[in-house]
Simulated assay, not measured.
Amino acid sequence: MKLGRLNHIGVATPSIADSIAHYRDVMGASDITEPFDLPEQGVKVCFVNTPTHSGMDGTQIELIEPYDESSPINGFLAKNPAGGQHHVCFEVPDIAEARAEFEGMGKRVLGPTRIGAHGTPIFFVHPKDMQGMLTEIMETSKGDH
């Protein structure tokens, strides 16, 4: 498995509106997407785009708020009521190949491969198999290859 680009850091929040205000007013972020619902993932999402430097793409911060009471991040927020870093996401060129490699190494892939907030296939790897970090693996869009 070759490490791809860090695409984003997922931050669970009880309120996307409050988190947007924090990143805008405290951190000076000016490029923040409008929140949108991903009911199939159980979350509301928006992205804080960090600036590019020295020709390198900026990394995104993905703000995720529970969509409803069945959201998979409700458990995280119950343990961390103020929210916090939820996952990291790395890019791969071929999601099926990456999944097979992780499974071949005995890593626990959580659930089926599905379409993520960027509109490309994703899967998650259990934090106990990834040095304590829930890790999202995301296929780069075909235009990014």
Rank of each mutant, 00 (worst) to 15 (best):
C89R: 02
V43C: 02
A21L: 09
I95L: 06
S19L: 06
A98W: 03
I115G: 02
G4F: 13
L3E: 10
H22N: 01
T113Y: 09
G28W: 05
Q41E: 13
P66F: 04
F36L: 05
L110F: 12
L63D: 04
P51D: 15
H53W: 15
A78D: 10
I64E: 00
G119K: 04
H22V: 05
F123D: 01
D144C: 08
K44I: 13
M130Q: 05
D129H: 04
P66N: 06
A98C: 05
F90Y: 15
Q41Y: 02
S70Y: 03
M133T: 12
F36M: 07
S30G: 09
A12R: 00
V43Q: 00
Y23V: 10
E136D: 10
G55F: 15
A12C: 09
D144A: 08
E69I: 06
G84E: 08
I9S: 08
S141I: 12
K44V: 13
M27I: 14
Q60W: 06
D37R: 01
T33F: 04
I137F: 13
F102H: 11
P72G: 08
R99P: 03
H126Y: 07
M27G: 01
A78G: 07
R114L: 13
F47V: 07
L110Y: 08
S141N: 15
A29V: 09
S30A: 12
D129Q: 05
G84Q: 13
S54N: 15
M130K: 02
N7V: 11
A98Q: 04
T120D: 09
G106S: 08
Y67F: 12
V125F: 04
G10M: 05
P121K: 02
F76P: 00
D31G: 07
H145S: 12
T52D: 15
I32F: 05
P81K: 03
K128V: 03
A82Q: 13
Y67E: 03
M133H: 04
M138L: 09
Q131D: 12
L110V: 14
